Simulated scan of single mutants.
Amino acid sequence: MSAPAVELRGVSVHFGRTVALRELDLTVGRGEALALLGPSGSGKSTALKAVAGFVRPHTGRVLLSGEDVTDLPPHRRGLGVVVQNYALFPHMRVADNVAFGLRARRMPRRQVEERVSEVLSMVGMADYRRRFPRELSGGQQQRVAIARALAIRPPVLLLDEPLSALDAALREEMLAELLRLRGELPDTALVYVTHDQGEALALADRIAVMRDARLVEVGPTDQLYHRPRTEFTASFLGAANLLPVEVVAAPGDGPATVRLAGAEFRAEPTGGPVAAGARAALGVRPHRVEVRTDGGMPARLLAVQWRGTGFRLDLELDGGTPLRAEVSSVDGLPPVGARVGVSIPDGCPLVTTGAGG
């Protein structure tokens, strides 16, 4: 079995007295796409910079394909890097920007021209090779930055918030472009830093959720979305309601029974065994909450927001627990301030209160 494309072993990064990354252990396989997901200041960009060689770990080691590169400078690691502001050379035309890394490696001129044409075609920019960056849109500049990173045929492609400077339509377009490129580069490992859960879910095979310079949880995208082990992952990835519940019964090897606002539900423990009588949190995605005029748990409708594709409802259960729902229509619902009924399905994830905090 070949060595992983990227390994971070106990990597910590300090900036003065500030700990930007704390004892991170993480592996990225050959051909795998891993998203580093978290809020600002969580340490995700610092982790990527440690892989790239832009910052040196205070402790720990960085390995690429099994080789310790902790002390190697960035230009000797052979990685492709795309940053948020594109970092194109303004005085160079598109073709020269893309060729920069190849020429630095003293590749023969004919091979440089062939490789530049190849990657520009790959990102749909073959007709723009003579233009300067200032003559391109934001999305086109991003494509050139990706082409430049791919030109050296890196085993690992690092992307640091590559779509955050684009408007919504361009972000969707570039996300589709990155998905297409993944299909064309099956052996290239991809590490993608983002705070956008939609990008992470669409692009990654696995997601590493980070908070306060630490790794909170890592796993396959569908596992983290449907069965998060921590409260933080449940709330950050998918904006789940975290409803405080009491565990009524917990057989240990199957669903637990929990009580909320006088009603009982079956829930799936995801953060380890829970004991009867324990306090825990039920993670309920807003789109799984049913709101109707009668039946179910009593609640009060506090606010209604139209979100384009549907409506977001802010509710409050008896006892003061807030609850958010997403529905396609509000036809038939009473006005804001009125009482409604709420239903929550069985099988929602159950995490121990405080996990991941």
Rank of each mutant, 00 (worst) to 15 (best):
D96S: 14
A99Q: 09
Y128L: 14
T59R: 15
G38N: 09
A99Y: 12
A104V: 14
D127H: 14
H58E: 12
R105F: 11
H91L: 10
D96Q: 15
T46G: 02
T70N: 06
F89E: 08
M107K: 12
L48G: 02
S45D: 04
V112T: 11
T46V: 14
P57R: 03
T70L: 08
T46P: 00
R129D: 11
G78I: 09
A87N: 06
V83C: 02
L102S: 12
M107G: 05
L72M: 12
L63V: 04
P73V: 11
Y128F: 15
V116S: 04
M122C: 09
G80I: 09
D68F: 07
V62T: 08
F100Q: 13
R130A: 13
M122V: 05
G38K: 07
V119H: 03
Y128H: 14
G60C: 06
T59C: 08
G80R: 06
S117M: 01
L37T: 07
R130F: 03
V98L: 11
F89I: 12
R130M: 05
E113W: 04
L37P: 00
S42D: 05
G43V: 05
R77E: 06
V83I: 13
D96C: 11
R105N: 10
L48D: 03
R77A: 08
V83D: 00
S45V: 05
G53Y: 02
G80E: 07
R76P: 01
V82Y: 03
P74I: 09
A87D: 07
L64G: 02
T59P: 01
R129E: 13
K49G: 00
A99V: 11
T70Q: 08
G53W: 01
G66H: 07
A126W: 02
R93D: 14
R129S: 14
N97P: 05
H75C: 05
P74M: 08
Y86T: 09
S65E: 15
G43S: 05
V83F: 15
M107P: 01
A52T: 03
A126S: 14
V55R: 02
F89K: 09
A87K: 09
V94A: 07
R105G: 10
L64K: 03
L102G: 11
E118R: 13
A47P: 00
G38T: 09
H91Q: 15
V116D: 04
P73A: 11
K49C: 06
Q84N: 09
S121M: 03
